[in-house]
Amino acid sequence: MSIDFKELFNEEGRHAPPSTLDTDYIVRRGRRVRARRRASVGASALLGVGAVALASVALASTVPSVGGTSAAGPASSSSAAGPALSASSSPAAEPTGGPTPWGAPPADLAAVSLPDPAPDFPVRLFPDSVQPESSGPGNQSRWVSIFRLAASPERTSTPSPGVVVSHATGPEVTMFVGAYSKPVHLSGLKSQSLAGSPEVAGVVGHLAEYTEKGTTFRCLYFTTGKFTVEIIGADVTTAQFVALGNALTGLQ
């Protein structure tokens, strides 16, 4: 028996009862979910900062006893905890004081910029942004500058009403600049192989390659000062990666 499955599925579900979906209700519930998520992220950040503060208090209270000061009883250590906690809570105030749970982005990271147009990649796919990303050592949320670039403008199509899909028409790259020093070690790059060590921005970079779902991606990693830069793209030459890395300003 020959069956046209597409036709069969097209016919199915044509006689639908009236929809009971209430978009206002969905938006209200969605807002609550969002708020809960933000609160839990903020709470985790606070918990982490609190743990650091407590560790520093513990460290501070053990130092005098090692030095031989006699009055290291619970009362004195708790009184020492007061100022120590408030002193270490000044960095803790930074993440909660800003408009986001992470506070404001570090000024030196915000000062890192890439010329517009960037070499070989004149199109900005999205406005440059500085945002918290889960990456880097320990996969923690850190501030990262992101540049999304393309060699040529994307083509858009509308496969169905209300849907706009973008298609790349040439090489595209994403650049991440993290305000943390992450010495790159290839054992930490899962399933990636070293493809070269080009010099970029005055340091030795690591060019790695990996294949995902049939596409070979190339990544250039380098650490300079307190910044780690990752540039990822497909069909991008080493010279193009290096030119982009060299074009970054504010890294020093």
């Binding site: 639908a16 929809s19 979906l21 978009t23 969905i26 969605g30 209300g162 849907v163 706009v164």
Partner: peptide, 27 residues
């Protein structure tokens, strides 16, 4: 078709255009 925006208006616009197809798929 207008570009779908990341705000609530964009969400409502997308739901208005695609909820019937989504409902059929769910069925």
């Amino acid at each position: 078709v207008d570009e779908i925006t990341p705000d609530e208006a964009g969400f409502r616009q997308w739901v208005a255009g695609r909820s019937t197809a989504l409902r059929r798929k769910a069925y």
